[in-house]
Design a protein around this nucleic acid. Structure first.
Lengths: 249, 249
DNA sequence: GCAAAAGTGTTTTCTTTACACCCATGC
DNA sequence: GCATGGGTGTAAAGAAAACACTTTTGC
């Protein structure tokens, strides 16, 4: 049995797949806002993969946990400071990074409201929120600026650096699974929300439609009515605001 | 922006929480075999934590993935060669290992049949299967040889090395979650099994009882009848053997 | 005969799904 | 007035829970 000191050591990074829901006001006031799932990516300023896209992330330091590294790097690179972090798997193929032996602990990060300014507070490289759609085993980011093709569970993309296409795909599957099984959808919403605010992201992420009346009933146990209404002012019929039902002891 | 080479690097280990179902023949042939959930632990032969218990595991090498490291170490230390591996989170508190900066990627491993010989093929340190029970926020291993107390999600034990008490607790929660949501129970069973072989482990892991008739119906879609019967020979009433329904395209 | 497990059936309840319908308001 | 979304009601189908009952065979 050798001492642990005899072993070579890899660099360890945290990479973060950040999702958020963005709303785009519709021109016709009778229509619902157009909601989209968005992902936060960085355009790389240096080699390797210069000017391709990658996930925010960075190296673990000896005085912090990998969760702290993820939070710190996300903040440094994108300005985000209040995400819900969910650990994913570790990516460790020996040749995954041309710079050398670097393994990456991936995280899923969910934020309640997309602040379009966050992207600008970032350091050197530029981060931005991009629309995320998945249809027929293809992930389409920013209307085709980036595409990821899924084949038999393997994700490939020409526009993404490293193995980040795979990490992003795995992150979306994890998000879907968590939304279906663990009410994680609420981590993507502000404190007060309408039923539509809840339903539309739910449908996008789970990739299935639900009749409004039925969705309402299904969620009834998980949410609480408030006496507030949507303040859009000029809505055709303001909808009631709900909040998440406080967790029981 | 610094180069990645400027950063200190941790040692990276894989630690594996291995669960299996063991059957103990009952003396009375009319009674069901006594089934138990078991966990595979190692009694440490050297410092630190000498003669305490720990999870099998070891260090990642530059030519392998962390999954490979987990498989390799599990085989080297316990003789097991055919487990289902499920990645868990990475444990990285800076002071988690007194030997230095060592982070650990944890895995859940499930095996279909406990081979009591496996433990003996192992190298230096001795591994063994121990009964695992969880009641009232306490995990009892080998009838009290090891206890883990859970308080507010934090797991502590006097008998376990490092942060392995926490890893084991997290692994059991993950197992429970996967059994409830993803049919992972079949990874703990051989190809052919009776309904009781399925139900008893299911109840142990999910920590709830189900009426036999109801459980049967719930599982009907997931399993297929065979024309074989339990070969116990002298059973009071041999039960039919089932297998997992082949996954659809 | 009795105990214990294998297996079937029935009834009740709850959830899911589908769909019809009314309400309020911007165009 | 009508399209669009907010919101309620209702009925059918399916799943979950509770429980009674029959079968088989070792003791």
């Amino acid at each position: 049995m050798n001492s642990y000191k005899d072993y070579e050591r890899p660099s360890v990074a945290a990479d973060i797949v950040t999702f958020g829901i963005d709303s785009e006001k519709s021109e016709n006031k009778r229509e619902l806002d157009n909601k989209m799932l968005k992902i936060l990516l960085i355009k790389r300023g240096e080699e390797p993969y210069k000017s391709q896209f990658s996930l925010p992330g960075g190296f673990l330091r000896p005085t912090e946990t990998i969760e702290n590294a993820a939070i710190r790097e996300l903040n440094e690179e994108t300005g985000i400071s209040n995400a819900t972090l969910i650990p994913m798997k570790t990516y460790s193929a020996p040749n995954r990074d041309p710079r050398g032996w670097i393994i990456s602990c991936a995280f899923l990060a969910l934020i309640r409201t997309i602040d379009t300014h966050t992207a600008e507070i970032s350091d050197a490289e530029s981060s931005c929120w991009m629309t995320f759609e998945m249809k027929d085993s293809v992930i389409i980011i920013n209307n085709g600026e980036i595409t990821i093709k899924i084949n038999n569970g393997k994700a490939v993309s020409d526009e993404l650096a490293f193995d980040h296409a795979q990490i992003i795909y795995d992150a979306f599957l994890k998000l879907k699974d968590e939304v279906i099984n663990h009410d994680i959808i609420f981590e993507l919403l502000p404190e007060y929300f309408t039923i539509a605010d809840l339903q539309i992201p739910y449908e996008i992420i789970t990739e299935r439609k639900e009749a409004a009346a039925n969705f309402r009933r299904k969620m009834a146990k998980k949410i609480e009515e408030t006496d507030m209404f949507e303040n859009g002012g000029a809505m055709h019929r303001p909808s009631k605001l709900y909040k998440r039902r406080s967790v029981k002891v």
